[in-house]
Amino acid sequence: MYNIFSKNQSFKTLLNISAGIIPLVCSGILLALVLNSFNAFSEFGFFNFLSSKEWNQSPNNESYGALPFISGTLLTTALALVLCIPLSLSVALFNGEYYKGKTISNVLNTIVDLLAGIPSVIYGLWGFYVLRPVVMSLGLSSQGSGILVASVVLAIMIVPYAASLSAEFIKLVPKEYKESAYSMGATRFEVIRYVIFPMASSGIFSSFILAMGRALGETMTVTMLIGNTNQMPQSLLDTGNTLASIVANQFGEADGLKLSSLFALALLLFIITAITNLIGKIIIKKKSISK
């Protein structure tokens, strides 16, 4: 047996090499971002770049800062999450508790899966031609585009992720605890509130973190809907830009210092999403180990 293993050392080596491609790609991404953003950081200084509100592209007076886009990213993500939480919790309870295993839950599940499958450029198109006119006709803003519309569509896009993951954690709550609570006279809502939610809380929390990670980096939909302006957003009806949308919008015609600044914004986005996803995954892994 051991003989055979040593003969096949070559296959193991092949596995090892291909596994090595993943770290190679990851470090390649990080390296490309760091190297290309080096100019911007050395020109403006790391903290100045983060805190500057300026995005001035006039050739003789270039000055770039990340603050408007960091604010835009945080605002759209926060609003999308606020809208997403009640919807995805409902879907999760519908599929994971109230109608678990029923046909109707399969139907909702399929709908949510299909929502997750729609390409982001189609969400953007729909938001642009359907939702934006609604905002305009309500008199909320003159051009319709802005943080509000972008967040609403973003919320629809991230609900499937948060909902299907949360539903899994709600399903994991053992039947014996629920029955035990019912046997003491609890109503269904009381069982959900005092038994299911506390027991599934870390899992549900992590699913929102992962959905947030998606919202932070979503590019096309936001670029099509946010209005693409480079000043600090003052309200939710304002136009703006997120880290992802400014890169998508300006990368094509950028060079020199501007290009480097866009890479710097991408680096920031990479770090933010990496940390967010890492936190989410760590909570999930802890949860599944303690089970």
Binding site: G213, V247, A266, A274
Partner: peptide
Amino acid sequence: LLQGTPSIIIGIV
């Protein structure tokens, strides 16, 4: 990490 990386970043990298 790779799965969570926004697609625009992969594009410019």
